Measured scan of single mutants.
Amino acid sequence: QVNIAPGSLDKALNQYAAHSGFTLSVDASLTRGKQSNGLHGDYDVESGLQQLLDGSGLQVKPLGNNSWTLEP
């Protein structure tokens, strides 16, 4: 069960990665100043990332080996 409060997208993504045990490689300029609506409930990694990114204009991309990145 994930419980991440709304706020900074950077912070939300870092909390989610730490909670879910995956690696997220992101260029900080992509997420700077963006906000997230947070995340509450049970999600697989990709669904949770998509939910956190909702409205940010960013997309999640798998890199393999439980690693992910973001792209515009």
Rank of each mutant, 00 (worst) to 15 (best):
Q1R: 14
Q1N: 12
Q1S: 13
Q1C: 15
V2R: 01
V2C: 11
V2W: 11
V2S: 05
N3G: 04
N3R: 08
N3S: 11
N3T: 11
N3W: 13
I4L: 05
I4V: 06
I4Y: 01
I4C: 06
I4N: 01
I4T: 01
A5C: 13
P6A: 12
P6C: 10
P6T: 05
P6F: 05
G7C: 12
G7K: 04
G7Y: 01
G7M: 13
G7D: 07
S8E: 11
S8G: 06
L9Y: 01
L9G: 01
L9P: 02
D10M: 11
K11L: 13
K11R: 12
K11F: 13
K11S: 14
K11Y: 14
A12P: 00
A12N: 06
A12C: 15
A12S: 06
A12E: 01
L13Q: 02
L13N: 02
N14W: 13
N14K: 15
N14L: 15
N14G: 10
N14F: 14
Q15V: 06
Y16S: 01
Y16P: 01
Y16V: 02
Y16A: 00
Y16H: 02
A17R: 06
A17Q: 08
A17K: 06
A17H: 04
A18D: 08
A18Y: 08
A18N: 09
A18Q: 12
A18G: 06
A18W: 08
A18I: 12
A18S: 11
H19K: 09
H19G: 06
S20F: 15
S20D: 04
G21A: 04
G21H: 09
G21K: 07
G21D: 05
F22A: 07
T23W: 09
T23H: 12
T23K: 11
T23D: 08
L24H: 03
L24E: 02
S25M: 13
S25H: 14
V26F: 15
V26M: 11
D27W: 09
D27Y: 05
D27R: 06
D27A: 06
A28K: 11
A28M: 10
A28Y: 11
A28R: 12
A28I: 10
A28D: 11
S29M: 10
S29P: 02
L30P: 05
T31R: 00
R32V: 15
R32D: 14
R32M: 14
R32N: 15
G33Y: 07
G33P: 07
G33Q: 03
G33E: 07
G33D: 12
G33N: 10
K34M: 08
K34C: 10
K34W: 07
K34A: 04
Q35T: 13
Q35G: 06
Q35M: 14
Q35K: 12
Q35C: 15
S36N: 02
S36M: 00
S36E: 02
N37S: 11
N37F: 10
N37L: 12
N37Y: 09
N37H: 10
G38D: 01
G38H: 04
G38L: 03
G38S: 01
G38A: 02
G38R: 02
G38P: 01
L39I: 08
L39Y: 01
L39K: 03
H40G: 03
H40F: 13
H40Q: 13
H40C: 14
H40K: 12
G41V: 05
G41P: 00
G41C: 05
D42A: 13
D42L: 15
D42K: 13
D42I: 14
Y43E: 03
Y43D: 01
Y43P: 04
Y43W: 12
Y43A: 00
Y43C: 07
D44L: 06
D44H: 06
D44P: 07
D44Q: 06
D44V: 04
V45G: 03
V45C: 07
V45D: 03
E46W: 14
E46G: 08
E46T: 09
E46N: 07
E46K: 11
S47V: 09
S47T: 12
S47M: 10
S47G: 09
S47Y: 08
G48W: 07
G48T: 03
G48M: 04
G48A: 07
G48C: 04
L49D: 00
L49R: 00
L49Q: 01
L49E: 00
Q50L: 12
Q50W: 12
Q50H: 10
Q50T: 13
Q51H: 11
L52H: 01
L52I: 09
L52Q: 00
L52K: 00
L53K: 00
D54A: 15
D54L: 15
D54V: 15
D54H: 14
D54M: 15
G55C: 07
G55R: 05
G55F: 06
G55M: 05
G55P: 02
S56L: 09
S56M: 08
G57L: 05
G57P: 01
G57K: 05
G57Y: 04
G57N: 07
L58Q: 00
L58W: 03
L58E: 00
L58S: 02
Q59Y: 10
Q59T: 12
Q59M: 13
V60L: 12
V60G: 10
V60H: 09
K61L: 08
K61F: 08
K61T: 07
K61V: 13
K61Q: 06
P62K: 13
P62Q: 12
P62L: 09
P62D: 10
P62F: 15
P62N: 13
L63D: 07
L63G: 07
G64Y: 04
G64M: 05
G64L: 04
G64E: 05
N65A: 09
N65Y: 09
N66D: 08
N66G: 09
N66K: 06
N66I: 03
N66W: 04
S67P: 00
S67W: 11
S67K: 11
S67D: 06
W68A: 01
W68G: 02
W68T: 02
W68D: 01
W68K: 00
T69N: 04
T69G: 10
T69R: 09
T69V: 12
T69F: 09
T69Y: 11
T69D: 05
L70Y: 02
L70C: 09
L70W: 00
L70T: 02
L70A: 05
E71Q: 10
E71Y: 10
E71N: 03
E71C: 10
E71L: 12
P72A: 12
